[in-house]
């Protein structure tokens, strides 16, 4: 690849990004390596190989690089799907590095032939428009713009107080498995403020229900476990009342306990 600076640079960057995305411990930092490795380099390399004998004009290079990278990813995932390792990090890196390597090699070979036929890159390539050195004002404006976008994204991720959101409470019982001889009943508050509750659990065949009163802060959960000693399946019904409205059933759930005894803890 001697004499093809862009291809050598591309290969070097591909190797750096491949290693970087494999060994960097922080996922957020790996993004810096993984984005060019997946969304830019394959497309650039394939386009370079395809247009080795007639270099591309710069406007076409941008959509081709992005589009062929996306197409390459979509089709490579099909290839990886049928390899023993499946779709994992290392196979992805290997396939992308191989694509870039072979395309760069092919581009270098064909460019060499074209040069021998009298066509050189310099003669035919439509170079990217030169960007002048940015003035200090331009740099400041760009930095402010970047800060604004960052602020917009941070704001978009933030959770706010919303006193208009209607709070509620969940009453639930864990879905029983065939081997379960107990049931777990939970009350989770998704209310705006602390609320007081009364939970009444009635087990079929038991004389007196279990009654619990408690308060829950927002996002807190109250758990109760119900066991069964009975030799036949028994029904369990839990009713939740708000302390502020003690006569009206607020939530209701039910379940069936498998045989093994029934007692309430």
């Amino acid at each position: 690849m001697r004499g093809h600076r862009d291809l050598r640079l591309l290969l070097a960057l591909t190797v750096v990004c491949a290693i970087g995305s494999l060994i960097t411990p922080l996922g957020a930092v790996r993004v810096i390596f993984a984005v060019p490795l997946t969304l830019i380099f394959p497309g650039y390399a394939i386009a370079a190989a395809a247009f080795a004998s007639r270099p591309l004009a710069w406007p076409e290079r941008i959509p081709l690089t992005l589009g062929i990278s996306l197409a390459c990813l979509a089709l490579s995932s099909l290839v990886l799907n049928y390899t023993p390792g499946g779709i994992r990090g290392l196979p992805w890196v290997l396939i992308l590095v191989l694509v870039v390597f072979f395309c760069c090699r092919s581009a270098a070979t064909h460019r060499g032939r074209s040069s021998r036929r009298g066509r050189t890159d310099r003669q035919e390539a439509d170079p990217l428009p030169k960007l002048g050195k940015p003035r200090p004002v331009t740099a400041i404006l760009a930095a402010v713009a970047l800060a604004m976008v960052a602020a917009a994204l941070v704001l978009a991720q933030a959770t706010f107080d919303n006193n208009n959101a209607a709070g509620y409470t969940q009453l639930w019982v864990s879905p029983p498995k065939p081997t379960d001889t107990f049931a777990q009943i939970g009350v989770t508050s998704e209310q705006q403020q602390t609320r007081g509750y009364r939970l009444v659990v009635e087990v079929e065949g038991e004389d007196s229900p279990l009654v619990q009163t408690f308060e829950l802060e927002p996002s807190q959960t109250h758990l109760t476990k119900v066991n069964s000693d009975s030799e036949s399946p028994v029904g369990v019904e839990a009713k939740l009342y708000l302390r502020s409205n003690p006569t009206k059933v607020y939530r209701r759930v039910s379940t069936q306990l498998n045989p093994a005894g029934a007692s309430v803890r």
Binding site: A28, R30, F33, A34, L70, L73, S77, N81, W92
Partner: peptide, 11 residues
């Protein structure tokens, strides 16, 4: 498939 490349490489 395309998204999986980024997901598996970056988490």
């Amino acid at each position: 498939g395309a998204t999986s490349a980024l997901r598996t490489l970056t988490g």
